[in-house]
Computed example of a mutant assay.
Amino acid sequence: ADDSADHLMQIVLRVPATPGGERPAGIHGLIRRQLEMTVVSRVIHTALLAAGGASACELAGAYASKLRTALDSLTALLRAPATPFVRQRFM
């Protein structure tokens, strides 16, 4: 992120290097995306609960499920060991 930009929240991600000393490519983007999905699901869930009404509560239940899935995915991503990505090239 650009330091001059305004941020509501900034999280610095520190991903450990692999045994070869390299950082896994793209892992920061994956973590950032999962964090975004978690926050968005929580905000929409809370807004729907605040709105009240039967249909809003039903939709809030759907977003609660999305929130649990996003949290599970984020937790698994943060705990999983880095694995190399190998693209096969055919000659």
Score class of each variant (00 low, 15 high):
1 A>P: 08
2 D>M: 06
4 S>H: 10
4 S>Q: 08
4 S>E: 10
4 S>F: 07
4 S>M: 04
5 A>N: 06
7 H>Q: 09
7 H>K: 15
7 H>M: 07
9 M>F: 14
9 M>S: 12
9 M>P: 02
10 Q>H: 14
10 Q>W: 08
10 Q>M: 13
10 Q>L: 14
12 V>P: 02
13 L>W: 06
13 L>H: 06
15 V>I: 12
15 V>Y: 01
17 A>T: 00
17 A>L: 01
18 T>E: 12
18 T>V: 00
19 P>R: 09
19 P>Y: 03
20 G>N: 12
21 G>Q: 05
21 G>V: 02
22 E>A: 10
22 E>Y: 06
22 E>R: 07
23 R>F: 12
23 R>T: 11
25 A>T: 08
26 G>I: 03
26 G>K: 03
26 G>C: 04
27 I>H: 13
27 I>F: 09
28 H>P: 01
29 G>V: 01
30 L>A: 10
30 L>T: 08
31 I>S: 07
33 R>K: 14
34 Q>P: 00
36 E>F: 00
36 E>N: 06
37 M>S: 07
38 T>E: 09
42 R>H: 12
42 R>P: 00
42 R>C: 07
44 I>T: 15
45 H>T: 05
45 H>V: 01
46 T>F: 05
47 A>V: 06
48 L>I: 03
50 A>Y: 06
51 A>K: 15
51 A>I: 06
51 A>T: 12
52 G>Y: 08
53 G>D: 05
56 A>Q: 02
56 A>E: 08
57 C>L: 09
57 C>P: 00
57 C>K: 08
58 E>V: 00
58 E>H: 04
59 L>Y: 03
59 L>H: 06
59 L>K: 10
59 L>M: 07
60 A>F: 01
60 A>S: 07
61 G>N: 08
61 G>C: 01
63 Y>N: 04
63 Y>Q: 08
64 A>P: 02
66 K>G: 02
67 L>W: 04
67 L>T: 01
68 R>N: 11
69 T>P: 00
69 T>Y: 12
69 T>N: 14
70 A>D: 07
71 L>F: 00
71 L>S: 10
72 D>E: 13
72 D>K: 11
73 S>T: 09
73 S>E: 15
74 L>S: 10
75 T>R: 15
79 R>Y: 00
80 A>V: 00
80 A>G: 00
81 P>F: 04
81 P>D: 12
81 P>T: 03
81 P>A: 05
85 F>H: 13
85 F>G: 02
86 V>E: 15
87 R>K: 15
87 R>C: 03
88 Q>V: 10
89 R>H: 10
89 R>K: 07
90 F>A: 03
90 F>D: 06
91 M>E: 11
